[in-house]
Design a protein around this nucleic acid. Structure first.
Length: 512
RNA sequence: GGUGCCGUAGCCAAGUGGUAAGGCAGCGGAUUGCAAAUCCGCUAUUCGCCGGUUCGAAUCCGGCCGGCACCUCCA
């Protein structure tokens, strides 16, 4: 069984073979920290976290890196606007970002900061200059794209064609219009570091090369990011890295589709956003503002559970664009709720929490020959289909489909046990539930019971229990008008009543 | 103009040569005092359009239509 990855470099799916057997390094381009995170900033992290989880399940030792760009013009401008230092602004936004990733279940091994890697970058730039791939010019240092024959291999472009479409003015400090800055001479008042070419700061792309190679090696496995970063950012990373080391930089390039807001197609997937001065983005911003659909992550996570956001992002194949809307979120939420309802049922049947189940963390530990009954045969079949989907370029949308089928199968088995009270049926049910947990762990969902919106306190719980007791009396006396009124009115307060064979239960629905 | 991605039911979404997964919504049934939850059944002769290749195509090729992204240095 082998995992295949769509590699942007070759524009086809390739069998995944790590550079170092048993180990995998993943680098994902993170945000420029100048404004609060929005939903687009977490698309890549959630996807690549899932890639990490799946590869770990497949037995690899995975290291996952997301960088933080904490030196940039946008940060400088924003800090000036807010009358604070760039350091303070960057720290604050970074903390906000990392906290949100944590809530979304994104497990990152390293968050390297650009400002901590200045010496690494300077060393690289010096090497590039020494080797003749870069040249100093007026306090800046530029990469000479004409010296790199493979320039354009990732985004499938050639420099001459691009010139035809060039629409911006070209700096006269450059030899070729496509040359890009490795180092930028400092202007007055800007954060600056000493360099052989005078005080300045790193260019846009060099940080990713320096940090990824330092943490993952000069040749590493997977480099990810939003589709919008493919050119020029990733193209330039490849050029400068491979010219510097003479080795292959990243083996597999994965690009995720961008988040879209309904009709408004403002891109949201990468670490950079359209400049405010850009006419197109002004219109987009206006449109978004009037629709009220620019959503910060903080706002989003106050309306929806982190788990739902994560599940939503995984419900579409990662290479497709994903549309953000409340309707879509609600739709996806229905399936997630079904899964949690199943978890409750599991607890009733087994007397222990589904969320606490210890499922196999790797493929090798999982008992693939569950054999025997038709039920377990079906479970294993569904697991295999799930894994085939994931092996095929991390098709989470397809995998979720098989999970939905597994839940239906498990519910049926639960019903079968509840009516027969047959111990063997129960044992099989338990084994099937472990498989569901195993598959959910790969997606990073169903890790804990959904948080209810308030009502966690003892008094509320006692009052609701009391209300249910009163209602039960009413039902026994067949005062259905009364019992229904209680149920209806509680429903309006967001409390759902379920009448089961074993008695009634209440549940406070979360806000959405 | 260049490069690339996409177009599958009311909606969302898998499927890349072998005869259309799954979810939401809807309808019918079981269950229920009625509900909720759960289960069962039904719901695309058809995959933007037109040609071609093939025994066979949503899947490959060509053309067209429609949507989107990127085409640089402070995106």
């Amino acid at each position: 069984m082998s995992t295949r990855i769509y590699n942007t470099l070759s524009r086809q799916k390739e069998v995944f073979e790590p550079v170092v057997p048993g180990k995998v390094g993943i680098y994902c381009c993170g945000p420029t920290v100048y404004a609060p995170s929005h939903v687009g900033h977490v698309v890549g992290p959630v996807i690549f976290d899932t890639v990490k989880r799946f590869l770990r399940y497949r037995g690899y030792d995975v290291t996952f890196v997301i960088n933080i760009t904490d030196v940039d013009d946008k940060i400088i401008n924003k800090a000036a606007e807010e009358k604070t230092s760039t350091e303070e602004l960057a720290e604050r936004i970074t903390a906000d970002y990392i906290e949100h990733l944590g809530r979304l279940g994104v497990e990152v091994d390293h968050f390297p900061r650009a400002t901590k890697y200045i010496p690494h970058m300077l060393a690289m730039i010096e090497t590039l200059v020494k080797k003749g791939f870069a040249y100093p010019s007026g306090g800046d240092v530029y990469f000479d794209v004409t010296r790199h024959p493979a320039y354009g291999k990732l985004s499938n472009r050639n420099i001459d064609e691009m010139m035809a479409g060039a629409r911006k003015e070209v700096s006269d400090l450059k030899r070729h219009p496509s040359d890009f800055a490795l180092w930028k001479g400092a202007k007055a008042g800007e954060p600056a570091w000493e360099s052989p070419w005078g005080p300045g700061r790193p260019g846009w792309h060099i940080e990713c090369s320096a940090m990824s190679m330092d943490l993952l090696g000069e040749t590493f496995d997977i480099h990810g990011g939003g589709l919008d970063l493919c050119f020029p950012h990733h193209e330039d990373e490849i050029a400068q890295s491979e010219c510097c080391t003479g080795k292959t930089y990243a083996k597999y390039w994965m690009h995720n589709g961008l988040m879209q807001y309904g009709d408004d197609t403002r891109k949201m997937g990468g670490r950079c956003m359209a400049e405010e001065g850009d006419i197109a983005s002004q219109e987009a911003a206006k449109m978004s503002k009037s629709k009220g659909n620019i959503v910060t992550l903080a706002k989003l996570l106050s309306d929806y559970s982190p788990e739902l956001i994560r599940f939503f992002l995984l419900s579409t194949h990662y290479r497709s664009p994903i549309s953000f809307s409340d309707e879509r979120l609600k739709e996806v939420g229905a399936l997630l709720e079904k899964a949690h309802t199943f978890a409750e049922r599991y607890e009733q049947v087994m007397g222990s929490a589904f969320y606490e189940l210890k499922a196999p963390q790797t493929w090798a530990e999982a008992p693939f020959e569950a054999g025997g009954s038709e039920f377990l045969g079906r479970v294993v079949e569904l697991r295999n289909r799930y894994l085939e989907f994931m092996d095929d370029d991390f098709n989470t949308a397809g995998a979720i489909g098989t999970m939905a089928e597994l839940i239906t199968l498990l519910n049926r088995q639960a019903g079968s046990y509840e009516s027969s009270k047959d111990e063997a049926t129960k044992t099989e049910f338990a084994a099937g539930a472990v498989v569901l947990k195993e598959l959910a762990d790969i997606l990073g969902i169903l890790t804990k019971a959904p948080e209810s919106a308030g009502g966690d306190d003892q008094l509320t719980a006692s009052l609701l229990d009391l209300l249910l007791k009163v209602r039960q009396m009413a039902r026994q006396e067949k005062s259905f008008a009364l019992s229904d009124a209680i149920r209806d009115e509680l429903a309006e307060l967001g409390v759902t009543i379920k009448d089961g064979k074993e008695g009634s239960s209440w549940k406070i629905e979360s806000s959405h």
